[in-house]
Simulated assay, not measured.
Amino acid sequence: MSEVVVKELCAVLFPLLSRRGRRLRAEQYLRGLLSATGRKSIRNIAAQVGGPGIEQSLHHFITSSAWPWRPLRAALAGYMENTVAPVAWVVRPLDIPKAGSHSVGVDEHFAPHLGQVYRGQQAQGVWLTSPELSAPVNWRMVVPEPWITDSGRRKQADVPGDLRPESREECAVSAVLQMVQGWDMPARPVLLDMRQGPVLAATSRLSTAGVSFLARVSPSCRLLVADPASPGHRAGALAAQRVANMVTGRRTPVPWHDVVRGTPRTTTATTVPVVLPGGARPRQLSLLAEWADPAGPCSGLWLTNMTSASLFSLLRLSKLEDRTETDFARIGSRAGLRDFAGRSFCGWHRHMTLASIAHTATALSTNG
């Protein structure tokens, strides 16, 4: 771990905390996250930075102290923007299995990438991503309806009064829009997974806010072919997979560099002008279809409102998901992104903010 990186992050971010005691606790918590082995509980963190004598102070700092986490997240994003020059925001789901029923947000959740239901918490993280590294800067928890409508549970977990139930996909879009509308930083193209959710509603919210997006969609996603010269025009709503199959003759070999494995790769891909059916004011979109094996089935389908972008730039953008997945696997657990053991909504957000800073410090230290 680079001490220079840790000191710089502390110097840039923690002056935003108004009290000296809070700045001290923030640095202690960060250093504990970076040095503790195993689960990053407050007890383990305290053991690394001062022993049992400060455990209660750190517990109060995370669960009860009133410091706001959003300014730190915005400052972390600004630091990443200046240091790493990210080219995209990648929205990545976080599934946190958890027993019991007292921690905020715990419920039965479906994890599409696992293909199963689990009990625990579910969140969406927005990662600032470049080909070289990525780090999460914003989080939004999926808070199931019982945690909002049950006044007892809501009070117990300190859930804000203005929070409303959101699906996994709605939560992803809300996390992005919070950054676009409230943070003073340049917006980047957003990558997100819409294979399970209401694609029209999500993409409409993003387009209305002026956000460029590349959204992975399911093969069954219904689309209208908008190009009169393309097969399927005037055929009504067709499944995205069928639209892709109808234009296989237009596939183009696209070279790209696998930034995770460090090897050159080539795939075939094409784009088709489409619109989503059902919208009051249909927006022009492009369907990006990819074939990893030219002789095999379509391996990926995305919708984008970046209709003038080149096929190469869209495909290269889609591969940034691999960078985020790799960085989460090698750093995320070590930084404590799944380890908050408290019960409150605010405590979870404060822990996730500092764990995101720990992830950033580790990523920068190992890529410097």
Score class of each variant (00 low, 15 high):
residue 345 F to G: 00
residue 267 T to K: 03
residue 208 T to Q: 13
residue 143 V to D: 07
residue 264 P to A: 13
residue 104 V to C: 07
residue 149 T to I: 15
residue 295 A to F: 03
residue 105 G to W: 13
residue 14 F to H: 11
residue 162 D to G: 12
residue 35 S to D: 10
residue 92 R to M: 10
residue 353 T to W: 06
residue 291 W to Y: 08
residue 131 P to G: 00
residue 193 D to H: 02
residue 233 H to G: 05
residue 131 P to Y: 01
residue 184 D to Y: 11
residue 152 G to C: 05
residue 167 S to A: 05
residue 85 A to C: 10
residue 184 D to S: 15
residue 299 S to T: 15
residue 213 F to A: 03
residue 267 T to P: 00
residue 265 R to N: 04
residue 184 D to Q: 12
residue 60 H to G: 04
residue 175 A to F: 09
residue 312 F to W: 11
residue 79 Y to K: 05
residue 60 H to T: 14
residue 22 R to C: 05
residue 253 P to N: 01
residue 190 V to W: 08
residue 332 G to L: 05
residue 1 M to P: 06
residue 17 L to F: 12
residue 155 K to R: 15
residue 192 L to D: 05
residue 249 G to Y: 04
residue 245 N to C: 01
residue 346 C to W: 08
residue 283 R to E: 13
residue 363 A to M: 03
residue 64 S to P: 07
residue 89 W to H: 04
residue 273 P to W: 00
residue 258 D to G: 12
residue 147 W to L: 09
residue 201 A to V: 14
residue 306 M to K: 06
residue 53 G to M: 08
residue 179 M to K: 02
residue 176 V to M: 07
residue 23 R to H: 04
residue 173 V to E: 00
residue 128 L to K: 04
residue 339 D to H: 15
residue 77 A to L: 10
residue 156 Q to F: 14
residue 275 V to R: 04
residue 276 L to G: 00
residue 244 A to C: 02
residue 14 F to T: 13
residue 8 E to A: 11
residue 101 S to K: 10
residue 158 D to V: 07
residue 157 A to T: 08
residue 364 L to Y: 13
residue 246 M to E: 13
residue 109 H to A: 05
residue 313 S to H: 07
residue 294 P to H: 01
residue 293 D to M: 07
residue 157 A to S: 11
residue 277 P to I: 14
residue 359 H to L: 14
residue 113 H to C: 03
residue 262 G to C: 04
residue 14 F to S: 02
residue 221 C to V: 13
residue 344 S to F: 11
residue 306 M to Q: 15
residue 296 G to P: 01
